[in-house]
Amino acid sequence: MKRHLISAGDLTRQDALLILDTADELARVSDRSIKKLPTLRGRTVVNLFFEDSTRTRISFEAAAKRLSADVINFSAKGSSVSKGESLKDTALTLQAMGADAVVIRHSASGAPHRLATWVDGSVVNAGDGTHEHPTQALLDAFTMRRRLGALDGRRITIVGDVLHSRVARSNVLLLNTLGAQVTLVAPPTLLPVTVDSWPCEVSYDLDAVLPKSDVIMMLRVQTERMNASYFPSAREYSRRYGLDRDRLAKMADDAIVMHPGPMNRGVEIAAEVADSARSTIVEQVANGVTIRMAVLYLLLGGETQ
């Protein structure tokens, strides 16, 4: 494996399967009464969050703590960043503190990549702008594999705001590596112009794709990034691209519904669908801790390269 985890596209099939297999074993630790492992004792993991996040930050923190690493949480609010400190100076500060890994979330695409050139430790991308969110893709793949078995040949449909979604991009890359067939469904205004070059298919008709899918992954409508009118109204979006009870009924019997959270209930996903037995949304959160433990172990557990 590479020293950093910046893009899901950096993972070879072998790397990806190693992470998933490691997570499978680590999941058993979560069932024990003592959930802690001594593996990363004496290592320091810095959570560097320039953008708001609940589940990802907590998930990385829990993962690092279960592996006995020391965790330093840094959020832009209340730090010197609000006094105008640059990313580079922040990075050099962390470097001086001896961070073995930096988990970074940033609103600018490419920030983790830049950071990796400034620090000696491993950099883990926890979401950068509209670019990538590799650990989310890994936990999604892990959740699918636990429900459906191997992903080779499985049909995965990702629905919604692909344009602003780092989750979608990372998922397309990783699922393709794992041998699944990915279809993106979105209004044309919410697809990136370069989507032709992605290893996936594109459709504008959710109802046609639904019955053929093993997994339906709904993306959040990112109102905070909606700086133009991408669709006429939330109601119209919901009617064409939302997952409601009627659409759920059209899906194959063993197909599952996923959502990376946070959800807009009633917009991209109906509340009763989100709470149904077919939905893996709560599982995804639990699996997030496990997969992040696997990533931190594989990046930091061995010799430092």
Partner: peptide
């Protein structure tokens, strides 16, 4: 995960 020589080799797959 309990080995004392983890840092001497690349991270190993778990049993």
């Amino acid at each position: 995960m309990y080995r004392d020589d983890l840092r001497l080799r690349p991270a190993r797959p778990l049993g």
